[in-house]
Amino acid sequence: MIISIASGKGGTGKTTVATNLALSLKGDVNLLDCDVEEPNAHLFIKPTIDKVETVSTFVPKIDDAKCNLCRKCTDICRFSALAVAGNSLLVFPEMCHSCEGCLEVCPEGAISASTRELGVLESGHCGDLGFYSGRIRVGEAMSPPLIKKVRTKEREREITIIDAPPGTSCPVIAAMKGSDFVLMVTEPTPFGLHDLKLAVEAVKVLGIPSGLVINRSDMGDNGVKEYAKQENIPVFLEIPFERKIAEAYSRGIPIVEAFPAWAITFRTLYEKIEQYSADLKES
């Protein structure tokens, strides 16, 4: 079972739910932090990191001695990563999307493969929990390939929890696509509702079943609940605002560590997701 934790709006509690759920489950569990721009799960899990590997992507390298400026490469490149200026061919590695079209079409063999660092993949564990986290290099714009690299680890265990980035565009899709269930975390405010609707649309486009956690459930209005009812999205858990929880969070202490009784709540959350998914499959 692969569960992605998503939200649309940022700061609603994705990481809180992902980390507490992962820490509460007994057994064969992996946690994947796919919010590679701002990964935070490690701040709460405090894993032992066993391995850090650099993740790179293809960029072209030009052999000026062989290049005759025929421009076949600049013609095929849709991303303006290659340009002829005066008597030389220039590469703009940050613009490259690694399609390798230039490598394919160069008739002179003047282009070879080089790399650009996208970021790192950290692998580790916290007790029995497996932990993987992607971290994009500052200044790097292309996150989906790094997210996909983190997700190569998802079939290693029985349960995989994915902490997704906020939003609804390509990085979020890369983090959710192919998962079995999307657990959406929202807050009951106009911003929370507006962005939840976008997230629900994205999940529908992907055809993945979803459910809802309402965080800070007593700070806002009824909009989110009414919408959930109308759209037939199950609300699996409501977490009321408690200053004690917010303060523990601010220090990097998971809820289940500060208040161990919450572990039962998070295990129940998982059971509800499992039951709901099983019922859906049957019908």
Binding site: E37, E38, N40, F44, I136, G167
Partner: peptide, 30 residues
């Protein structure tokens, strides 16, 4: 939010950034 493609496109050439931070381990890290 974040530091990726849309943020890069948002800040180039700006006069100044106001960074709104919350006092949490995540807020500081990010």
């Amino acid at each position: 939010p974040g530091i990726g493609c849309p943020v890069i496109a948002s800040i180039g050439g700006a006069t100044a950034l106001v960074i709104v931070v919350e006092p949490t381990v995540s807020g500081l890290h990010d």
